[in-house]
Measured scan of single mutants.
Amino acid sequence: VTTYKLVINGKTLKGETTTKAVDAETSEKAFKQYANDNGVDGVWTYDDATKTFTVTEMV
């Protein structure tokens, strides 16, 4: 189990959250659901070296 981080650069929501998951794909699903639940829709990137997802909304 690995800890993954999500950085949110939204128009109205900014911040970070973490989750523990067995792999990046599992954490990505959880993070995308979290973003969707909070009305964040944007461009996703992933940095495997830091286990960090970033979602950026276009303004």
Rank of each mutant, 00 (worst) to 15 (best):
K51I: 02
T26L: 06
T3H: 06
V59L: 12
K32M: 08
F31I: 02
T18Y: 15
F31V: 01
E28Y: 15
D41E: 13
T54C: 05
D47I: 04
T2H: 14
T3G: 04
K14M: 09
T50Q: 05
T18K: 06
N38L: 15
S27M: 06
A30T: 14
A35R: 02
D23C: 05
K5C: 08
Y46P: 00
V1I: 12
I8P: 00
K14S: 10
K5L: 07
T18E: 10
A21P: 01
N36S: 14
T2F: 14
G15W: 15
K20L: 14
T50G: 03
V22G: 09
Y4D: 02
T54P: 00
G10K: 04
Q33H: 06
V55P: 00
S27L: 04
V7E: 04
K20R: 13
T50M: 05
F53A: 01
L13S: 07
Y4L: 02
L6A: 02
V59M: 12
E57K: 03
D23Y: 04
T54K: 04
T26I: 08
V22H: 11
N9A: 08
A49Q: 11
T17N: 05
V22T: 12
A35E: 00
G15M: 15
W44Y: 01
T52N: 00
T17V: 15
S27D: 01
A21R: 03
F53L: 01
Y34A: 02
E25L: 12
Y46F: 06
K32W: 07
V55D: 00
V7H: 05
Q33A: 11
V43K: 08
A30Y: 15
T52C: 04
V7M: 07
N38H: 14
T18H: 10
V55T: 02
K14Q: 11
T56R: 05
K20A: 11
K11F: 13
T17A: 11
L6Q: 02
A49D: 11
A21M: 04
T45K: 07
Y46W: 03
K51W: 05
S27H: 02
S27F: 03
L13F: 15
D41C: 13
S27G: 12
E28W: 15
D41V: 14
T52I: 05
L6W: 03
D23H: 04
K20I: 14
A24S: 09
K14R: 12
S27P: 04
N36Q: 14
G15I: 15
K5M: 07
K14G: 05
K20T: 14
T52H: 01
